[in-house]
Structures are given as structure tokens and as C-alpha cells.
Design a protein around this nucleic acid. Structure first.
Lengths: 232, 232
DNA sequence: ACCTGACATATTTTCGAAAATCATTGACAG
DNA sequence: CTGTCAATGATTTTCGAAAATATGTCAGGT
């Protein structure tokens, strides 16, 4: 019996096998290891996760409700595919929703919120975004810190529902970004943009901060668009 | 073999038992027949839907991802409970998201969009919102037409993601409304507000139409709040 | 060559029971 | 009287196989 969690080897991720399957498949989709359009056969996923069909089925049901997988009745699940129009739709909604959430956070955030965004930005700035050698290991840590920084920025908005909407939009947008990075190799350097957003948020200049955040998302989307048009 | 659908008696709703269970349980939650906080035992739902545990489990996984049920690992599912703070959060986000969607629809909508909102409003106006006698049958039709009208209003916004967000917010808000109506008995008359929104949308006066829509949602929320504070 | 239909295969969907986990009860010690 | 702990019952979670459905193949006719 170790201190944290149980001693069972079969449930690394969550408290149930279904949770474990959910986290594994979700991570594989978001990182691009399961590619857009790929079929998600139960036999494969059972072998991969080392469990029966029931928990896998539950995991795919959740992922489908979140838009990461699609189900064709009696024909099986597959990874949700990418499209230029969806990327643009995600980006537009992200700019609107996260922009509003940032504005609220700047209006309502206290000193602890300031501490959260300073700390999470520091962690992010201390990590290279990615390199040609060992891209996977480094980028795994960077991806997590990048998501944590953006979450911290809007964490004082006071609306759990808005936070949930933003989290979902971020996850979908990040899938586009990670897949285009992993396939294109190159990626742009967003460190300056992240710093600019932080400075303006700390200065409580909502209009300027929101403008910087929206420009950041638009720049990211433009880079992905360029990739999708050539390789997609 | 009849023309539409299969001849199987076991699948009235969707093409699979899991779809059927999903629709049944969802409807029961949204109408308030399954009350907030109620436990959702598999034995009960299996008996109700006439199927085994697997499809029921899949249905509850989907409903949980949509926020209509909550899961406590190894302790079971239950109907999501209501709270004053959540009602206010839903209302604020609804005003923001649907307001923006209506503004986009007014800017982009063509003649077919106009026809949709005129037609759906006509259907809605031809039905009494509810009466003391026979409330359930009448209100079932009214609820559907009410949802259809609000969906039509924003149907030309051009953003599938925004439409999805609005649909989810509407469903959650409508659960609050239906439960408060069914428990309080009385309900306010929103016909004039619906007509005002339609007129301003047809006149392409976006600011005025959005203002009327947001006032409509705020008035509805205020009535529910009054009920929640007394009876909740 | 091309379409049709029956057969065989692959895959999903569902079931019924076993295993695992949680909640409750009641005995017993402090 | 109070708190701990084991035994019991209720419920969730998972499994392995059966049933249902879709997909692919191939012979036969036009």
C-alpha cells in the first residue's frame, strides 16, 4: 500500500478502468498519435489498454460527447477529422470566449490570480518550446505548461461554465497545433506574445491584454492554416 | 417491415439501444421527471428501458459529459443538482453567447432565415404556453416549439460551434425553467417578448434585437430565481 | 465487362454473470 | 455512551461470449 492511490497495477490513471481508457485515448488523439480520421477499433484499443470492451466503450462515448471522436452507428468510432472551416470556427469562438474571460479576470482578479499568472508564465518561459532533437519529451512538458498558463490567465473570471467552454476550445485548438507541429517540424516562437499578454494583464489594461491574446490566437491559427493548405 | 425504420420493437428512439436509453433518460432529466439529485441506479434504468446494463452505462457516460448527470466513482450516477449560482452563470453565458449568435444571424441571415424565424414564431404563438388543466400534454408541444424558435433565431450565425454552445446552454436553462414551472404551477407569459425579438430581428436592428433577447432571458431567470429562493 | 445476390468474414452491440467496491448493521471494547 | 471493526447486503464495474449488423468476396447471369 503506497501513500497515494492504490497498489493495483491495472489502474494507473484514474480510479476505474474506464477512466484510464478515457485518459489514454484522449491523450493519443490530442497529441496526434491517433491521427484524424483513424478508425478506433475495439479490438485494438482493448489490446492497447489491456482491458475488456466495456470500459473502452464508455471512454469512447465520453470522447464523442466532447467532439474528439465521432460515431457511425453500427459502423464504429473514429478520430474526429480536421478541416480548415472548423479551425476558423474554433479560432473565432476562442478569441471571443477567452477574450471575454480574460477581460473578466482582469476586472475581478486579486493578488493570488496575479501570482498564478506570474508563476505559470515563469514555468513556461523556462522551457524551450521544442527542438529538432527529442521533440516528444520536451514538448510534452511544454504543452502542459502552455495550457496551464492560458488557463491561469482566465482563472479569475468567476464563471465555471465559461472556463469549461474555454477549456474545450483550447483542447480542440491545441490538437490542430500539435498535429501541424509534429507533421511540419517547424513551429513559431510565441514567447514574446506570452510575455506581452502577461504584462498587459498585470497592468490591468483589459483592452490591450485582450487584443494581445486575440492576436496570439490568430497568429497561431494563421500558421496552422498555412500548414493545412499545403499538407492537408 | 414498415417504411421508416426497422420493425424491431426494442429500438423506438435511435438506431441502437444505447441511443434509446440516452434519449429517454435525457428527456426524463430535462423535463424534471428525474429530479435534481436523484440517484440513477442501473437496476432501475434497466427495468425502465428494458435492456441490459451496457447501453444504460453508455447513455449515462454521454449525459455526464454534457453536464446533465454527475458520476461519483464506484458510488454511482445521479441527476445534476440545481443551484442559484449555476442559474446565474448559465444566464450570463446565455445572454453573451446567444446575443452574439443573434447579432451574427441578423448580419448574415438571408430570406430563408427570415422564413424560418417567422414560421417557427407562428407555430409557437399558436399554442398556449400552458394551462392549469392538462399542463403536461400541452407544455410538451410548447417546449419543443419554444426551443425551435430560439434555435431558428440564431440559425444563420454561421458557426456550428457557437450553435452547439448555445444549444447546451439552452437545454440547461430550460431544465431550470421546466422544473420551476412544474413545481410552482404558475408561469409568466413571454409571448410579447418573443414577438418583440422577432420584429426587431426582421427589421435588422441588431442592437435592439439583442437587447430584447437578453432582457427575455434575464426576465425568465429572475422568475426562476424567485422560485428557487422560496422553494429551493 | 458489369451488375446482382448469396456466402463468409470482420466488427460492433448487447447480454448475463462474476468480480470489485461501497454502504449498513451490529457486536464488542474502551 | 461512544467509537472501532468485521460481516453482510446493495451497487457499481468489468469480463467473456453471444447476437446483430456491416463489409468484403466471388460465382453466375446479362
Amino acid at each position: 500500500m503506497n501513500a497515494a492511490g492504490t497498489s493495483r497495477s491495472a489502474k494507473p490513471g484514474g480510479r476505474t478502468l474506464a477512466n484510464d481508457a478515457y485518459e489514454r485515448v484522449r491523450a493519443a488523439i490530442l497529441t496526434g498519435r491517433f491521427r484524424p480520421g483513424d478508425r478506433l477499433r475495439f479490438a485494438d484499443l482493448q489490446a492497447l489498454c489491456g482491458m475488456s470492451v466495456t470500459p473502452v466503450r464508455e471512454a469512447l462515448a465520453r470522447l464523442t460527447a466532447e467532439g474528439f471522436a465521432v460515431l457511425d452507428d453500427h459502423r464504429g468510432y473514429s478520430v474526429a477529422s480536421l478541416s480548415l472551416s472548423e479551425l476558423r470556427d474554433i479560432t473565432a469562438n476562442r478569441k471571443r470566449c477567452e477574450g471575454e474571460a480574460l477581460r473578466l479576470s482582469i476586472a475581478r482578479g486579486d493578488a493570488e490570480w496575479e501570482a498564478r499568472i506570474v508563476a505559470s508564465h515563469h514555468l513556461l518561459s523556462r522551457l524551450p518550446q521544442g527542438r529538432e532533437d527529442m521533440p516528444s519529451v520536451i514538448s510534452a512538458g511544454w504543452d502542459a505548461r502552455h495550457a496551464a498558463y492560458h488557463q491561469a490567465l482566465i482563472s479569475a473570471c468567476g464563471s465555471p461554465i465559461l472556463l469549461d467552454i474555454c477549456a474545450r476550445l483550447f483542447a480542440h485548438a491545441d490538437r490542430y497545433r500539435r498535429i501541424s507541429v509534429s507533421l511540419a517540424g517547424a513551429q513559431r516562437d510565441a514567447a514574446a506574445e506570452h510575455r506581452l499578454i502577461l504584462e498587459r494583464a498585470l497592468a490591468r489594461d483589459a483592452d490591450a491584454a485582450v487584443e494581445a491574446l486575440q492576436a496570439h490566437y490568430q497568429n497561431t491559427a494563421d500558421a496552422i492554416e498555412a500548414f493545412l493548405e499545403t499538407a492537408g
